[in-house]
Design a protein around this nucleic acid. Sequence first.
DNA 1: CGAGGGATTGAATTCATTCAATTCTTGTGG
DNA 2: CCACAAGAATTGAATGAATTCAATCCCTCG
Lengths: 257, 257
Amino acid sequence: MTFIKEYNFKKTLNTSISCDKCRLGRLCLPDGLNKNQMSKLDKIISRKKPYQRGDYLFRNGDILHSVYAIHSGSIKTYSMQNDGKIQINGFLLSGEIAGLEGIANNCHSVDAVALETTSVCEIPFKQLESLSVEIPKLQHQMFKVLSNEIKHEQTLASLLGRKTAEQRLAAFLLSLSLRFECRNFSANTFNLSMSRSDIANYLGLAVETVSRIITRLSDNKILSVKRKMVSIYDKKKLYQMAGIISQPPNVIRKTGT
Amino acid sequence: MTFIKEYNFKKTLNTSISCDKCRLGRLCLPDGLNKNQMSKLDKIISRKKPYQRGDYLFRNGDILHSVYAIHSGSIKTYSMQNDGKIQINGFLLSGEIAGLEGIANNCHSVDAVALETTSVCEIPFKQLESLSVEIPKLQHQMFKVLSNEIKHEQTLASLLGRKTAEQRLAAFLLSLSLRFECRNFSANTFNLSMSRSDIANYLGLAVETVSRIITRLSDNKILSVKRKMVSIYDKKKLYQMAGIISQPPNVIRKTGT
DNA sequence: CGAGGGATTGAATTCATTCAATTCTTGTGG
DNA sequence: CCACAAGAATTGAATGAATTCAATCCCTCG
């Protein structure tokens, strides 16, 4: 298994994590827990040496030992389709939890790989379950996190099903922008940790299409992308393009079917 | 609120549900619970008068009071996009749980409407949470159900992102076939409870495209669809078309980005 | 039995892809 | 430190799959 760089050989640097002191606060799993509850959670979490770009957190088929909260950096998850092609399922930023899709069968169903130097809190799942029985609020948080992931995937599905290439890319960039803003990074200037072809794959587009749209958006002074660095100039316009209107249309609810 | 047919006016027919006696068995939430645990679950579940075609289980924006296990029949869930268009998020059959995407914000984010006469087990969510603390196995089941839903949505996303119209429809029909089979219905002859335009919308296609593909599949003797009744003649071929090969290609794992 | 929605079929159009060529970056070894 | 190789990104032209528009057909239900 030498092809997996450093896989499974990371040494634990620091088993005494402190969620209480983590700047992620409300963005991560322990949101809403009190200090005592957090310290119980701390005890089961371990932080390992940061992953480097290309390192795997886990691989499709691995037994699900843990779920992983991204502490800093970013990862992508992907799986291989039956036709041998890769499908990127998502990009995760700090505070987001990787591995949740593995719970169903106690076995990871995607590969998770670091896009940059990434620090991760590993949470052994069995222990997390036990603790969730002990701390109802933690169970509730888990339900919320899982439900949020479902909503997120539903949003993605409707993006892929109904939107034009331009709308998809606009929505993708705005989603990133929003997520960076929540993390106290700049909403208008940020770095893409993923390649154009990663973005294209995720959005169900060809690389060339993504490239062309970026060029068009740049020409229209809506944003600029220099290599990996995105600068958004006209966010309002970008929202319009994404088909996301701040003020939703006042539509009469129709009765179904 | 007269536009919502019978909404919220259903009378409880039978509060003494028995999961133990339900034929759904392993397909539903109580899978793996013992009799004692099931009877505890029974106590919080209520079964109402069946919903008729077009009746809503809940609506986008409603407070999440309960999640709903389909007992018989089928429903669809959908939401309205910012552009005023409808997006169908899924079709649920017996044993499947509706409302999970509402947990994140304690508020339903889709409309759920019966596609035919449908009987439903209503599970008050707060009580379900309490019981899940008391019965760790039930908590585990909830985690599994939620995780499964995430996987399902991921599969849908990659269907919408990368597959041709033909592959999408083939995969959709096979997925239905499989789900009917699990429920001890015929895998090769079954009834579509949803319209062509529902299918098209769900799959990110135009109705005309769905229609044309059905015609083509019929011409090729792979299946026939008479109005709503599907008969699959050549399932192997259908799997091939869907890009789902029984024996996955023996591909060397590549190291990521 | 007739009306109206659902489904099908045909023709023209379009958005995104594919193929192909070039430019730009980045990392590595001499 | 520079040169060069290899991957990443961009640009252009031709192609194609699915959509849109339009017309017709077929059920179902009142």
